[in-house]
């Protein structure tokens, strides 16, 4: 390999890193304890350097897919063979977002989210948290776009169903009060 090739390879790698590091760090932070995230991200970029010829122009989904495999393979005390799952904002952490979800709705969302299967949480998170398109998310999960769209649709149905009990709870409470009065 010529020095010119080396230079081009290095420039591309640095460019990919600069463009994707923040998103990749957030992707990993959503799925492992914060103290572990930088280790995982570092491993992903090592893999990207070794396989730079395989990294597509839209590098982010490819890197996310490598990160998922890396996290799944990394058995530390925090993982201990549990399925890879998406974390939530802890109750004592500041909630991000645009503030349109009030505290009560957030509790309902939190409860509904926790009731879902990890697979459903993952497809929802890829869109809602990671901001991927269906095609990009399909790349991350290693499935066809049509398959991802179907899985997303089903996950959203289950999310809505999980939110329903909370939605009807005020009505149920009113009925209970009527019965008590």
């Amino acid at each position: 390999m010529s020095s010119g090739d080396d230079g081009a390879r290095e420039r591309r790698f640095r460019g990919v890193h600069a463009a994707t590091y923040p998103d990749l760090l957030r992707f990993v932070q959503r799925r492992v304890p914060p103290s572990e995230a930088e280790d995982i991200v570092s491993t992903v970029f090592l893999t990207a350097w070794r396989r730079l010829d395989d990294v597509p122009e839209d590098a982010r989904p490819w890197l996310f897919a490598v990160a998922r495999r890396t996290m799944a393979n990394q058995t530390r005390s925090w993982l201990r063979r549990q399925a890879l799952d998406v974390r939530l904002v802890a109750q004592d952490e500041p909630a991000y977002g645009d503030g349109t979800v009030d505290a009560a709705a957030r509790i309902d969302l939190d409860r509904a989210w926790r009731s879902l299967r990890p697979d459903d949480r993952e497809v929802l998170a890829l869109v809602a948290f990671d901001g991927l398109t269906a095609g990009q998310a399909a790349t991350v999960l290693g499935c066809r776009r049509s398959t991802f769209v179907m899985r997303l649709s089903r996950a959203r149905e289950r999310l809505r169903a999980a939110l329903e009990p909370a939605a009807v709870r005020p009505h149920a409470l009113a009925v209970l009060k009527e019965q008590q009065s």
């Binding site: 904002v89 909630a95 977002g97 948290f129 809505r160 939110l163």
Partner: peptide, 13 residues
């Protein structure tokens, strides 16, 4: 529904 989920994002922002 997906937009609302952003409130649960542990790394958002």
């Amino acid at each position: 529904d997906l937009e609302q989920l952003a409130a649960l994002d542990p790394a958002g922002g």
